[in-house]
Every structure is written in structure tokens, then in C-alpha cells.
């Protein structure tokens, strides 16, 4: 015996819908929970002032600025290197051992726990290269962390460019590199931007790597150079929620910090979506 086609169709559909709704439900619940608890903590003072009284009062301004600097810094590291590597792998690399080794390395990097990146950053940037615990060390470490994501999504974006564009350009007596620069790369920008959106969320949220490379427990001023230590939202949240001076008293601040972190990631994503849409419009794909 067996179910008839219509019944099995209905059951499959029900399960698929349920799975999708469950996922959406959890996301909405988390959003609701953080917004409803954090909403009251948000004020101009909270967003623009230094923390006071061992972080039990005042704002989270330096942590906001620190997180934004980290996003910018790690993107400056990861985007050029990731995109160039992706161009090499999709357009130039042959099917040989070197390519295979590079691909393997990227896959392994993608699967490496972030705390290991943190330790590497500590050994390499903080100690060996002597950058100290700093914005620079942390940005480099986070940059390395997201390079695999940027490479993978850039590769996909480059491969999605129709081969007809390449053919058309080459047939005009345009060299391969010029073709990549003027036709392939512009056409793949929407895809590359999408990939970097994903990694921005990652950079903003990572705690272990920056904890080891430059995030300060408490530092009520802004970093004044790339060699300065800094505060960052996820680490600040961790401190308030675990090692803070008074966990119960700072609870509203914790929710407020989480909400701000969420908002920054959403805001950056929103900008990235606008960039992507702008390029899509321009390309009329």
C-alpha cells in the first residue's frame, strides 16, 4: 500500500510550510524579545555618552563607534583580497594541484572556529608584528575570518556573469584583464555586495577574535589611532551579562546594547541592499 499522490503532496506541503514558519517564528520572537526589552534603554544619552560608574550607568557610544570601525577595517582588509583571489580562481587558475590546494585552504579557513582566528591574530598581529592589542590587529583578524565568505560569494557572482559578455569583449580585441575589469567585474558587483552583506553581520557580532586582539573591557574614550584599543558592542554585551559589576542592575543596558547591535547590522545591510539595487538598476539585469 502507499499513500496516493495527492495525500502525500498535502503532507509534504504541510511539513515544508511548518518548517519555514518555525524558522520565521523564531526570528520574529528573538526580534520581538530584544526590541521589547531593549526599547526603554534607548535614549540619546545611551547612544552618545560614555559608560559611567563601571558601566552600570551612562551610554555605549565608544562600543558603537568601535564596532563601526571594526566593520570598516575588516572590510578594507577582506574585500580587496577576497575579490582578487576570487578573480584569480575563477578566471585564471587552471585545474591543477595549486588550485586544489588553494581551494582546500579556503574550505578549511571557512570551517575554522573563530577563537582559533583570535589566537592566530594574537600571535601574529599583536605579538609577532607588534601591532599590540589594537583596532588594527582586530580588523586584520576579522578580515581573515571573513575572507573565505567573500571569496566564495565573489566566485559565484563572477561565474554568474554570462559567458557571452566575455566572448563579446574578447572578440573586440580586448585583453582578458581589461575584459574582467570593464565587463565582468561591474556585472558581478550586485552578487559581490550580497556576499559582503553576510560577512558584515559576522564581523559586527564576533566576540572571541576581538577579545584576544584588542577589545577593551572598559575604555571610556574613542580610539584615537589604529593602534588604540577599543570597545565593541558584542564584547560589551558579554561583559555586562557575565562579568559586569551588577548583572541585575545592568539588565536594561544589556538589552539596549543587543538592540543597538542588531540595528547597526540591519542598517548596514539596508545600505548594502541599496547599493546592490543601484548597480542592478544600472546594469538592467
Amino acid at each position: 500500500m502507499g499513500l496516493n499522490a495527492k495525500t502525500s503532496e498535502r503532507i509534504a506541503f504541510a511539513f515544508l510550510t511548518l518548517a519555514a514558519l518555525t524558522v520565521a517564528g523564531f526570528v520574529l520572537f528573538i526580534l520581538y524579545y530584544i526590541v521589547s526589552n531593549g526599547y526603554n534603554a534607548i535614549s540619546i544619552e545611551f547612544l552618545t555618552e560614555m559608560p559611567r560608574k563601571m558601566m552600570t550607568e551612562g551610554g555605549i557610544y565608544p562600543a558603537i563607534v568601535g564596532t563601526i570601525y571594526l566593520i570598516i577595517g575588516s572590510m578594507l582588509v577582506a574585500l580587496p583580497m577576497g575579490i582578487l583571489a576570487a578573480i584569480y580562481l575563477t578566471e585564471y587558475a587552471g585545474q591543477n594541484r595549486t588550485t586544489w590546494a588553494i581551494e582546500m585552504a579556503i574550505n578549511n579557513l571557512a570551517g575554522t572556529p573563530s577563537v582559533v582566528f583570535g589566537l592566530f591574530g594574537l600571535a601574529m598581529f599583536v605579538k609577532y608584528l607588534g601591532f599590540g592589542p589594537s583596532l588594527l590587529s582586530a580588523s586584520l583578524t576579522l578580515g581573515l575570518l571573513i575572507i573565505p565568505v567573500i571569496i566564495r560569494s565573489s566566485e559565484e557572482a563572477l561565474l554568474a556573469v554570462p559567458p557571452e559578455y566575455r566572448e563579446a569583449s574578447l572578440a573586440l580585441g580586448i585583453s582578458k584583464w581589461q575584459t574582467i575589469r570593464h565587463v565582468v567585474l561591474p556585472a558581478s558587483i550586485p552578487g559581490i555586495v550580497t556576499g559582503s552583506i553576510l560577512s558584515i553581520g559576522r564581523v559586527a557580532g564576533e566576540t572571541a577574535p576581538i577579545l584576544l586582539t584588542g577589545a577593551a573591557y572598559f575604555l571610556p574614550r574613542l580610539p584615537d589611532s589604529v593602534y588604540s584599543q577599543f570597545m565593541a558592542l558584542p564584547y560589551h554585551l558579554f561583559v555586562l551579562a557575565t562579568a559586569g559589576t551588577n548583572i541585575a542592575q545592568t539588565r536594561p543596558l544589556q538589552y539596549g546594547t543587543a538592540l543597538v547591535l542588531l540595528m547597526i547590522v540591519l542598517a548596514v545591510n539596508f545600505v548594502a541592499v541599496l547599493v546592490r539595487r543601484y548597480y542592478r538598476q544600472k546594469l538592467k539585469i
Partner: peptide, 19 residues
């Protein structure tokens, strides 16, 4: 080859303007 293709142009089966 780049010079050669300047001298010998090609039009393809499917129109393939750039975006």
C-alpha cells in the same frame, strides 16, 4: 591574439550587448 581579434571582428548568434 588581442591584435588579431582587433583585425578580425566577430558577431555572434545571439545578440550579446553589454549591460
Amino acid at each position: 591574439v588581442v591584435d588579431l581579434r582587433k583585425q578580425v571582428g566577430m558577431v555572434f548568434q545571439k545578440p550579446n550587448p553589454f549591460p
